[in-house]
Amino acid sequence: MASSNGRKASEIFQGQALIYRHMFAFIDSMCLKTIIELGIPDIIHKHGQPITLSELVSILHVPPARVGHVQSLMHYLSHHRFFESVRIHEKEAYALTAASELLVKSSELSLAPMVEYILDPTLSASFHQMKKWVYEEDLSVFDISLGCSLWDFLNKNPAYNESFNEAMARDSQMSNLALRDCKLVFEGLESIVDVGGGTGATARMISEAFPDLKCVVLDRPHVLENLSESNNLTYVGGDMFKSIPKADAVLLKWILHDWTDKDCIKILENCKEAISSNNGKRGKIIVIDMVIQEKQDEHKVTELKLLWDVAMACVLNGKERNEEEWKKLFMEAGFQDYKISPLTGFLSLIEIYP
């Protein structure tokens, strides 16, 4: 049977399911936040083997009336592969998966600080301003909700700034895991500047892998306070929109997606200036960022990239870009050539040449 608009009932029901799935999507985030706050990944990790529901609720001191609710939470997250449901002595038990291992706080690759930062209610509540954001030129959801940009908010609130830096440092560990297999990118370089490099997680990894490579981290002065330098790792407080220290190469990891095209061109022009006339060498810019490739990527990967695109637009008036959009930026900034290589499941490594 067709409805009055000509669609089959099955199509309408599929539309309803899609609406409801997105309507409740915020609960996905809250489930993720809850298991981190309860320390469930850490409990299973410390347990050393899959844990039964009775063992888990006993450790958590869950009231008897809430045991079934915890089971619902674990069942849902197991369905989404945050946990693996197994049987032990005829009882259901839960084991860690690759995703939940990344939520163990003691892990070198833990992304728990990233989740806690993104889902902080003061920041995440700003997305309720998206309707107003659509009509307000040049304002982000933070400008509307908090009365200032994200960067100004972080400058004024040291606790949030510390949380942000920790989140970015943890994310850098994931990029570093991939960069360890990209040694050719850094071979032949004598110096490199990590622009917007935060507390130096990525630069530290590069400096340790290449002891003869001089690494400099450029970031806002207050970000760099009390950081320890080494023989080939130093920190410089400054503004990438004004100048960048001279070097053979400049690294821009997850920087350009924060900014408008006009701002990106200015940053790239300053990068070009930094690598020019450096002992006659042909310098390069190394960009780690997303490249939207809808025809090549799996559907879920494209979905993630497009979701990030919306998030960057809302939070910073930035954007994720496809190859044509990247190429346009590079050419307008005066570069002649570039090369895109895969890095992680959704990030690419782009080498740009003057």
Rank of each mutant, 00 (worst) to 15 (best):
T97I: 04
L189F: 06
D261Y: 00
E320Q: 13
L316I: 01
S172D: 11
D258I: 01
R321Q: 05
P50D: 04
Y117N: 08
I288D: 02
W259R: 02
L218T: 09
H89A: 14
A2G: 12
N157M: 02
E298V: 04
E303D: 10
A65M: 08
K156A: 15
Q296C: 07
D212R: 09
E332S: 09
L154K: 03
F164K: 00
G345S: 11
I288V: 14
T199E: 12
L32E: 13
S243R: 07
K132Q: 14
Q49W: 03
G68N: 09
V301S: 10
E323G: 04
L77H: 05
S106V: 03
V134L: 12
K284G: 12
F346Q: 10
L96I: 03
Q336K: 13
L96K: 03
Q173F: 05
E101W: 02
G280P: 06
L53S: 07
T52F: 01
A333T: 10
T122W: 00
A159D: 15
A333G: 02
R87A: 04
I35G: 06
L18F: 12
L73W: 07
G48K: 03
A2S: 07
R170E: 03
D263E: 15
V193N: 07
I286Q: 03
D212H: 11
S107R: 07
L224K: 08
I40F: 02
A203R: 04
L123A: 02
E324K: 15
L347W: 10
S145R: 05
D194T: 02
Q49I: 00
V70N: 01
A98K: 10
S175N: 14
V185F: 07
L102Q: 09
K105M: 11
R87N: 10
V287G: 08
K339D: 13
K91C: 07
L139Q: 15
F26R: 12
L329S: 05
K281Q: 03
N231P: 01
G200S: 07
I51V: 12
S72V: 02
H45G: 00
E187A: 12
I286K: 00
V115T: 13
L146N: 09
N270E: 06
M240Y: 14
A203I: 03
I206G: 10
D138M: 07
E162L: 13
P113E: 11
S100L: 01
A311D: 13
Q14D: 14
